[in-house]
Amino acid sequence: MYNFLNDNSIYVVLLVALINWIGLFIYLVKTESKLNKLEKQISSMKTNNKGRNE
């Protein structure tokens, strides 16, 4: 693997580009899960308010 990457240096560039993409992608996934949590909190707040009103 190391020898292959050493001989075909263009794949190192590809690897670096992929690392950048994966890093930004991980942030996307984290934001998604956080937003899900917030949505759940908001919906639970709404049901609580309904209970109070009734």
Binding site: N6, V12, V16, G23
Partner: peptide, 20 residues
């Protein structure tokens, strides 16, 4: 927070480059 993501990514990509 977002700046740290970029610093960490820069360090990792630099490490890969340094290996070769």
């Amino acid at each position: 927070k977002i700046g740290l993501i970029f610093t960490i990514l820069g360090t990792i990509t630099g490490m890969v480059w340094a290996k070769f």
